[in-house]
Simulated assay, not measured.
Amino acid sequence: MAAQATFRSIKSVIPLFDRVLVQRFKPDTKTASGILLPSSVTNNPLPEATVIAVGPGAPDKNGKVVPTSVQSGDRVLLPGWGGNPIKVGEEEYFLFKDSEILAKIKE
């Protein structure tokens, strides 16, 4: 596993270029009826996340900046791999390239 960066405040992390800062949804530790789920089930990260911050975009081959396809507050579908982990206190966030995000989830 890659080294994990640790910060005091998530506001100190400003994504560059086409990077997107997300926080994955946490799996439920209990069923609706109150049964506790084993850690082998709850340790797998869910593929859904909330976008926390986005970079301004990356330049294309002509030098024109192409903005990211998601915005802060969007719900997104992530691949099962990748992303750079960032730790803020007990919370874990990830930086992904905009092109690695699979889909935007509409409510």
Score class of each variant (00 low, 15 high):
residue 76 V to I: 13
residue 63 G to E: 09
residue 80 G to E: 09
residue 74 D to S: 04
residue 6 T to K: 11
residue 41 V to M: 13
residue 23 Q to C: 09
residue 13 V to M: 10
residue 40 S to R: 10
residue 2 A to Q: 09
residue 51 V to F: 06
residue 4 Q to S: 11
residue 66 V to L: 11
residue 11 K to W: 01
residue 48 E to T: 15
residue 28 D to C: 03
residue 10 I to Q: 01
residue 45 P to A: 06
residue 89 G to Y: 08
residue 58 A to V: 12
residue 66 V to H: 03
residue 55 G to Q: 06
residue 49 A to K: 05
residue 4 Q to T: 15
residue 7 F to L: 13
residue 87 K to A: 09
residue 51 V to H: 03
residue 68 T to W: 00
residue 25 F to V: 02
residue 36 L to D: 14
residue 20 V to I: 13
residue 31 T to R: 08
residue 44 N to K: 15
residue 72 S to F: 02
residue 31 T to M: 05
residue 60 D to V: 12
residue 59 P to C: 03
residue 21 L to C: 00
residue 89 G to Q: 04
residue 5 A to R: 10
residue 41 V to H: 09
residue 57 G to R: 01
residue 52 I to N: 00
residue 72 S to E: 15
residue 85 P to L: 02
residue 83 G to I: 02
residue 69 S to P: 00
residue 3 A to E: 14
residue 31 T to N: 11
residue 18 D to Y: 01
residue 15 P to W: 05
residue 3 A to L: 04
residue 56 P to N: 04
residue 61 K to Y: 10
residue 76 V to L: 04
residue 33 S to F: 05
residue 84 N to K: 13
residue 15 P to V: 01
residue 38 P to L: 09
residue 63 G to Y: 10
residue 38 P to F: 08
residue 62 N to C: 04
residue 52 I to D: 01
residue 13 V to A: 04
residue 72 S to V: 02
residue 27 P to G: 04
residue 34 G to E: 07
residue 12 S to P: 04
residue 72 S to R: 12
residue 84 N to F: 15
residue 26 K to A: 06
residue 79 P to L: 12
residue 10 I to E: 00
residue 81 W to N: 12
residue 3 A to C: 00
residue 34 G to L: 02
